[in-house]
Design a protein around this nucleic acid. Structure first.
Length: 422
RNA sequence: GUGGGUGUAGCUCAGGGGUUAGAGCACCCGGUUGUGGCCCGGGAGGCCGCCGGUUCAAAUCCGGUCAUCCACCCCA
């Protein structure tokens, strides 16, 4: 019988990585909620049609990377490859966009794309995303960028770049697309096969081509900048001013066009050393396109795996304290110490096994616990606990009532030491 | 989807046709009867990714396959 394994590109996230993920999730939720974003739980499965109509039938994501299947009634369903489409669908379906009210939401969960796996890229991966519905002010575009920047700083991501562009609206983009087709007519044979295909399906994407030869040819192409309509240009200008005002250092990149069809207006990408860790932008026609009321919107999504790869923060080890039952100790008395510490907010692990003391302490150290509470016959008889600090290799007898205080005092002293040392 | 690298102990890796496959770290037991790290002694742990081929003989060579990593493509 062969061992059963996980599916290619789909993995278990185990400690300590899982601890870091959990921490990042908490950090993001806290920041988003501080801006009034409300959490939404979205389904992982949707009708395939949703993604075809939002992301775009011709995009790589929909045309070759979706996990699609038929349900028992023959309907085509897909595992979601991203979150925005579901978010928009949910807002419409729950009638949350009636009457021009602004709604801000965030979500978190697994996405699925059938791609070749690599580090930081899996077939099941996690995204943290937010969306703002009902605002057509550049200030809301700026806000989501500010929130994204806050996430980066809270996760201690070093050396990142925020790239921005405006892909224009439904009024000006077609004209630009036409210009490109015109400029490249007759040169179709000189560009790469991918670009040739994109020319008709997703014209603007060719600007993003990495092929040297193509780049050479596209260098002389008219710039999208010159074809943006006045309102797009004004909007983009206001957006940039707001970013500047908020102290967000950005880089303009005219080639930034994004792979999803629904973007209109400002878009951005957040690049760290490991690559793109977040991206987003404005999508003013998607809601109506999916059958909802005309509603301007914008949002972004972080890739959790990639954010974790670039994050400077680390998971806090668990447990913080370890209750070691020593010879002659009583479980009841030991558990009382555990409760006292848990009530004070500490993570506490008890052991119930009858094992040599040295084994217990070794285990506590291996788990990176800072504290051990020794509970043996002496403690039970004397009505105290022995509190051991592993870092200092010191221990003291502590009255149950003073247990929390003893730890807090030490930790405070420890923090002060760190500050004076640095 | 295309091209390439790598799969040997829990981890990092050595061995490159010939008996019982190795190291460091980690792990377990003992030297300590209530004390982790350091030291000393002992020990356990491997279908050498999987399937097939060549050969008297394969962890070693060849083919395939699966997994993983890298570069593309694409994207978070």
């Amino acid at each position: 019988m062969s061992k059963i394994r996980s599916v290619r590109g789909i993995r278990d996230v185990i400690y300590p990585e899982s601890g870091l993920y959990a921490k990042i999730e908490r950090v993001c939720a806290e920041i988003l909620e501080s801006y009034g974003y409300r959490k939404i739980y979205l389904p992982v499965i949707e009708f395939s049609e949703l993604f075809k109509r939002s992301i775009g039938d011709e995009t790589d994501i929909v045309s070759k990377e979706m996990y699609s299947f038929e349900d028992r009634k023959g309907r085509s369903l897909s595992l979601r490859p991203e979150g925005t489409a579901s978010a928009v669908r949910a807002m419409i379906e729950n009638k949350l966009l009636q009457g021009n009210i602004r709604e801000k939401i965030y979500y978190l969960g697994p996405m699925f794309r059938y791609e070749r796996p690599q580090e930081g890229r899996y077939r099941q991966f996690y995204q943290i995303g937010c969306e703002v519905f009902g605002s057509s002010s550049p200030a809301s575009d700026a806000e989501i960028a500010v929130v994204a920047a806050e996430v980066l700083s809270a996760c201690q991501v070093e050396n990142f770049t925020i790239k921005i562009n405006s892909v224009g609206c439904q009024d000006c983009r077609p004209a630009y697309r036409h210009k490109i087709l015109e400029a490249l007519s007759g040169k179709e044979d000189k560009i790469c096969a991918d670009c040739k295909r994109r020319l008709n399906t997703n014209t603007l994407r060719i600007l993003d081509c990495k092929n040297q030869n193509c780049r050479e040819i596209y260098k002389n192409l008219p710039s999208l900048r010159d074809y943006r309509c006045d309102s797009c240009e004004d909007y983009y200008g206001a957006y940039k001013n707001l970013l500047q005002d908020r102290g967000i250092a950005f880089k303009e990149d005219n080639g930034l066009v994004r792979g999803l069809d629904y973007y209109t207006g400002p878009v951005f990408e957040l690049e760290a050393e490991a690559g793109t860790i977040a991206a987003g932008g404005r999508y003013d026609s998607l809601v109506s396109q999916l059958g909802g009321p005309e509603t301007p919107a914008c949002g972004w999504a972080f890739g959790l795996e990639r954010l974790a790869l670039s994050a400077g923060i680390v998971a806090s080890p668990l447990p913080e304290a370890y209750i070691a039952l020593m010879p002659g100790g009583k479980v009841e008395y030991a558990s009382r110490a555990a409760s006292i510490l848990r009530d004070a907010g500490l993570s506490v692990e008890e052991d119930y096994e009858d094992a040599p003391p040295k084994k217990k302490l070794r285990q506590a150290v291996r788990k990176e616990a800072k504290w051990a509470v020794l509970v043996g016959g002496d403690e039970v008889a004397g009505g105290y606990y022995t509190l051991r600090n592993f870092q200092e290799s010191r221990q003291e007898q502590v009255d149950p009532a003073d247990l929390v205080k003893a730890i807090k005092d030490k930790e405070k002293a420890g923090i002060n030491n760190v500050e004076t040392n640095s």
